[in-house]
Structure formats: C-alpha cells, structure tokens
Amino acid sequence: MHWQKKYGGVTLGMCLLLLQGVARADGYFDVLDQPARVSALAASSALSGVARAGARLVAVGQRGHIVYSDDGGQHWQQAAVPVSCDLTAVNFSSPSQGWAVGNDGVILHSSDGGVTWRKQLDGRQIGPLLIEHYQALARAEPANEQWPLLVAEGRRQVEQGADKPLLDVWFANDQLGYAVGVFNLILRTTDGGKHWMPFQDRTDNPQGFHLNAIAATGDALYIAGEQGLLRKWDAARQRFVAVPTPYQGSFFGVLGKPGEVIAYGLRGNLLRSTDGGRNWIAQDSGLHTSITAGLVDTDGHYRLFTQGGQMLVSEGNGAQLQWRHEPEPLPVTGAAQTADGVMLVVGTRGVSTLRKE
C-alpha cells in the first residue's frame, strides 16, 4: 500500500489557493485539501470497498473517488469528495448516514446516502489528538506508565506527518463507530464523528500491529490484523481483548452470524469458531491465494473472495466451503449484494457484476 501523498504542479488556480492558505508554502498542495477530480472512468478505476446505503450502492477507491448507484450497479455517478487521497473502506449505519476512511488518516462523513461528503478528521489532527487525550489521562493518573508512552506515540505521529492510513470503519448506529488502521491506530466516536477519541489504551495490542478490519458478526464485534491479531469487544471490561488463534499470519477480515464467526486472511487461511472465539478450527479453503473480502448474502450463505478473483461459497454454516468458477476472475477488494440479490465486487478494475447462479 502506498502511503505517500500525490502532488500536482502549480497553476493559476493553485496560486489562488496559496493566497487562501490552503496550499503548502513550497508551492505544492496536499491531497487532504484537494477535492477529488471528476472522472468519467471513476467506476472503472481501482476501488477498494463497497457498501449498501439502503437500496443504494456506494464504492470508494483511489484518488478520493466515491461512486454510487441507484439501479443495482448498472449505472454509477461520482460523489462530491473534498479530498483526493486514496480511500480504503466505507460503511453505512443507515440509508443516509455513512463514513469512509483512507490514507493520510482521513475520515469522511455523508448524511445524504453518499452523494456528498465532508471531512471529519485527517492525519494532521490525529497526532495532536493523541497528545491532548493522553496528557489529560497522565495528569489524572501520574503513576500510570502507559500514558507517557501514548503521549510519545502522538508526538511521533506529529513529527512523521499525516501519512498513516486508516484501513477500515464500522458504525453500530448513527452515533457509535470505530475507525482502525496501521500501528494500532484506533479511534472511537459516540456522536457520529463530531468528536473522535483515541482508543489505543482500550485495545490489547502492545506490539502495535496493524489493524486491518473491524466488523460485527451478529453477536460480537471483532478487529482483525497482522501476525494473527484478533481482538473482540468485551462490554464488561470496555476494551478489545485478545482472542488467541492457531494462525500467526495476517487476517484481512471477519464475518459471521449469531453463534458463528469466520476469520480469513493470507494465503487462503480460514478459521471458524462456534463458541464466541474461545476455540478455532482451521477450514480447508483449497486455495493458496489471500482471501480479501467476504459477506453473508441474503440467503444466509457465506461468500468469500480472493485477490485472484476466486469465490468460495458455504451454504448454511461456514464448515463446508465450495469453490465457484468465474469465467473471468478479477482481483477483489470488496463485495456487496444489491437489494434484488445481484452480487457485485470491486477491485483494481472497478465494479464488476457476478453472473447469477
């Protein structure tokens, strides 16, 4: 994943931006201040995530592109987006309220079903946010050795700049949500994103591993990350606690139904638990390609997709997976199902509709 920012040359318009204090003093502008360019090819360019907003579909991708469709993916329109950094994930808590995250620590919010977006937070604010939050806790608990370490982490982020990506976002409702990213970066909001609070101290991740995904399985909330990291929300302790698994490679996602959870990841690895994550059984996917996306369809079947374009389907529970052949497999980074049951995937070639079975 590329974390660097993209800059453009100086034009008359950018000189005007300089006068307004938006552009950098060295003559270049920041992608966090540059709106996404309108492109007729936005829906066929690289996309990284897709979600349902009621009957609407909304997909996000490179250069700040966000596209939406109101006819099951047949036609797409480009949304108005205030940034041009790469976006990694999107989630809607209701047909109108949605959030997208991406590179440079950006968090975007839409209140009209994904047609227009505004920025709630970016990486330039995250470092100072960490410093302020954990300095306050350090003053309240001067004997707690954890707070100075987290203050120092905030200072490192300020020194290194706003290049740390957020990799996923999930909202329980229109108010409570989380955004997760690299190096144990995790933020929580309880007011729809008006304010974001650092949550590193509430997540069992002393090594600072990347947090790749966050998802609810129907009866639990999980975070998946690198080097076998799997964390589950413990309401009694008000923190994400460690969930031991027999796999030490990267997890790219979690999905499930009440009473069952599946974690998937690198080189086709797939684990299943039916006891709330206490015990895990490795499932044979029959693949050696990384599983990068998944969902539970309207019939309650699991569908898992790989970076090579393969699709695994399990009818009923997740113990029996079968490979479904696609005539023209494409790399998949996200998947969604339309209101009338059509399956769509997104990836490096934009949006694709899968053939009906």
Rank of each mutant, 00 (worst) to 15 (best):
G193D: 12
E141G: 05
F305Q: 03
T348H: 01
K119V: 13
L32E: 10
A100Q: 09
V296Q: 09
A235P: 10
A213M: 13
Y28V: 05
D284H: 07
L47Q: 03
Q307V: 04
L354R: 03
Q320R: 02
G61P: 03
R231G: 13
G177M: 07
V332S: 04
V243A: 11
N212W: 12
T189M: 10
Q337R: 02
L229R: 09
F240S: 10
L295G: 00
V182H: 14
V50M: 13
A51Y: 08
K194S: 14
L230P: 13
Q62E: 08
D168Q: 04
K194P: 10
Q135G: 06
H2N: 00
R24T: 08
I223W: 15
T338W: 00
A335V: 04
H109A: 08
D71Q: 01
I291W: 02
V182P: 07
G193W: 07
S94P: 07
A224T: 15
L166V: 08
A215W: 13
G127V: 11
A179E: 09
N205S: 14
W233K: 11
T306K: 05
G9H: 06
R24L: 12
T88E: 10
S273M: 15
Q78C: 01
A224R: 15
G49H: 03
D71M: 02
T289G: 02
Q157V: 01
R267K: 14
G276H: 07
S290T: 14
G309D: 13
N269S: 15
L121G: 13
F199G: 12
